[in-house]
Design a protein around this nucleic acid. Structure first.
Length: 260
DNA sequence: ATGGCTGGTAGAACCAGA
């Protein structure tokens, strides 16, 4: 069972490369973030035609939006509002074997890493706080994936010192994410399979003249699993080539394979 | 070089992303 996660930065603008990814990599399930489509304008038919018969949506107009498309039967479990403001940032499903799969788009948090000067930063930390409460009572085997918008380790960013005051790598964010991880003893599958000190990125800015040459990346996208689920993980890949496909997303897809 | 880009939506020298 291969499960993929990808911040697609508009599913409609990038339908061609999503189709290519599903055709070439053939994951059983793909979790999308930043779909930027209301549920009624999500291109459901294109996914059905590729065999992804199960399409579970939590979208909204313009911004945010998450989706789970699956070849195997999944049933919608719940959609959480961890920011308590109505934004579409989570969708959770039940897999055929009983595991939960939760797909989340954690807020970016704005530019200034200060609650007082920038309310979005506080909302980001509070969002993760509510996820931590959820995690601490979670007893079911679960896979948690998505764009976490935090690169926790020094080798998860191109320059640790340069990014200490940049939202996504500030010490308070790293500490907040660490508490989330501890709340369920989540296993960080990316670093389980590709340990430090190897550098590991999933996002490169659109603004670089040559993203590959400058390589100023960050590991913002993650797959975490309950310990019992992580024990069934048998492989993990990041698909860096997708950063060059057509009009690309600034994020790349990540995939974990599980023995089920 | 904290923006050199991008998409959605309106129909803005806009907003948000990170």
């Amino acid at each position: 069972m291969k499960i993929a996660s990808w911040n697609i930065n508009s599913v409609r603008a990038r339908l061609d490369i999503v189709e290519r990814f599903l055709t070439e990599m053939a994951p059983d399930i793909l979790c999308l973030q930043e779909t930027k489509a209301e549920n009624g304008s999500f291109p459901v038919k294109a996914f059905h035609e590729l065999g992804y018969d199960h399409v579970i949506l939590n979208g909204q107009k313009m911004h945010h939006g998450v989706a789970i498309v699956s070849k195997v039967p999944v049933t919608e479990e719940r959609r959480e509002d961890w920011q308590a403001n109505g934004e579409a940032r989570h969708i959770g499903v039940r897999l055929p074997n009983g595991w939960r799969l939760d797909n989340v788009y954690i807020p970016a948090g704005g530019d200034i890493p200060d609650r007082e000067q920038n309310p979005k930063f506080g909302q980001k930390l509070d969002f993760i706080g509510r996820m931590t409460d959820w995690s601490s009572t979670l007893e079911e085997p679960t896979i948690l994936v998505g764009d976490f918008n935090i690169a926790p380790f020094e080798t998860d960013v191109w320059g640790h010192k340069q990014l200490l005051d940049v939202v996504s790598h500030t010490p308070i964010e790293v500490e907040t994410l660490s508490r989330l991880r501890e709340a369920h003893d989540w296993v960080d599958l990316g670093r389980h399979f590709i340990p430090e000190p190897e550098r590991l990125y999933t996002w490169w800015s659109y603004r670089a003249a040559d993203w590959r040459a400058s390589d100023k990346g960050r590991r913002l996208d993650h797959m975490w699993a309950s310990p019992a689920v992580a024990a069934k993980a048998i492989g993990h890949q990041i698909h860096k080539d997708c950063r060059d496909w057509g009009k690309p997303s600034d994020h790349i897809p990540i995939v974990t394979e599980f023995a089920m």
